[in-house]
């Protein structure tokens, strides 16, 4: 049995979803993968708890108190006001799950967390796309230098397999270009505009009320979120050394119900598409033929790989939500499968 000591940095929606799944899957992982995954510390903005953590108590603490440092006082679990960086520097562990908010401006605090983890010879598994969109190359190099793994399947397309799918399942095949829908919120908005013939601002308000869109929706509807995922695909799958600054970005703010209706009459839907090929990284609304594989509705994500040997390959899946945990889990398993 291989014991894996995991630190959870960022205990919000994804962190808690992961903890919940782990409580249910621990025995299964032991039995099937010979892995005993132990959470040795949890950090959020209130501080850090470490020691012999009971995940069910940790989840209950978040539900009732909203701060991880309010975990019940007991001898086997210690508390500190130190945040993620202190936890990574000072607590012994094998792997850091970096799940803090995505910050596209400077990548922080995730970027410092990841670099600290590598310096301390810890693997990193993350869903946080900010640091990757800004400093992919540096992160990759630091991980290699320290002989540890850096896995980020969850950062693109949530539960939809894309990074590992392209690198492992399609290994040996050259990927010429990738087109996809990498943002569930905008896909929801456009799908709804198409179905109900209503303007964007009305659908957006509704999506915010339903919790599908953020209060500040600009990351989504101005295409920035899609662009950061495109950068990760470009680097990880196509070996293109790019950052978010290299992406030509146009969002969906100007899309009208009239355009959608005209497109529909002509056999098209309007989708926010990210496209990457050798000399182009572009996010823009595009006309997609109704019968095209890229035409998926609701909050779904999709990616079409155009390859030399395999032809066109399409993957579709849930781009966000608690399903994202599946990608974190498979990244962790894959690290130890080859070790």
């Amino acid at each position: 049995m291989k014991e894996v000591k995991v630190q959870i940095i960022g205990f919000g929606f994804i962190g808690q979803s992961f903890a919940e799944v782990l409580t249910k899957r621990r025995e299964y992982l032991k039995r099937n993968y010979n892995l005993d995954i132990k959470v040795v510390s949890i950090s959020d903005i209130s501080g850090t708890i470490y020691g012999d953590i009971d995940l069910i108590k940790a989840l209950r603490t978040m539900k009732e108190k909203g701060r991880i440092v309010d975990y019940p006082n007991e001898a086997k679990v210690k508390k500190s006001s130190g945040l993620g960086i202190e936890a990574i520097e000072n607590i012994e562990a094998d792997l850091v799950l970096e799940l803090t908010p995505s910050n596209i401006r400077d990548g922080e605090p995730g970027l410092s967390h990841m670099l600290a983890a590598f310096r301390n010879s810890k693997h990193v598994v993350t869903s946080n796309k900010g640091p990757l969109a800004i400093a992919f190359k540096k992160l990759k190099e630091e991980a290699e230098k320290n002989g540890v793994e850096f896995k980020f399947e969850a950062s693109v397309g949530g539960a939809m397999p894309i990074i590992n799918f392209a690198k492992e399942t399609l290994a040996g095949t050259k990927i010429i270009s990738v087109q996809g829908i990498f943002n569930g919120t905008t896909n929801y908005i456009l799908t709804k505009m198409t179905r109900d013939n209503v303007p964007l601002d009305i659908v957006l308000k509704e999506a915010q009320e339903m919790g599908i869109a953020e209060r500040d929706p600009s990351y989504d509807i101005d295409g920035i979120d899609t662009a950061s995922k495109l950068v990760i695909i470009a680097n990880a799958v196509m070996d293109i050394d790019a950052t978010i600054k290299d992406v030509k970005i146009e969002g969906i703010r100007k899309i009208t119900p009239e355009l959608i209706t005209l497109a529909k009459e002509d056999g098209y839907v309007v989708k926010l598409i990210g496209e990457v090929c050798k000399n182009k990284l572009e996010v823009s609304p595009r006309l997609v033929p109704i019968s095209h594989p890229l035409n998926v509705g609701g909050t779904l994500n999709v990616a079409v790989f155009y390859t030399d040997i395999a032809g066109e390959v399409t993957v579709i899946g849930k781009g966000a939500g608690k399903e994202t945990v599946s990608a974190l889990l498979s990244d962790i398993i894959s690290i130890y499968r080859c070790r």
Binding site: T256, E258, T261, L262, D266
Partner: peptide, 15 residues
Amino acid sequence: LSLRMSDPEKESSAI
């Protein structure tokens, strides 16, 4: 060319 206007003041859309 197909064109639609929602309102003469606003932007129009065309294919």
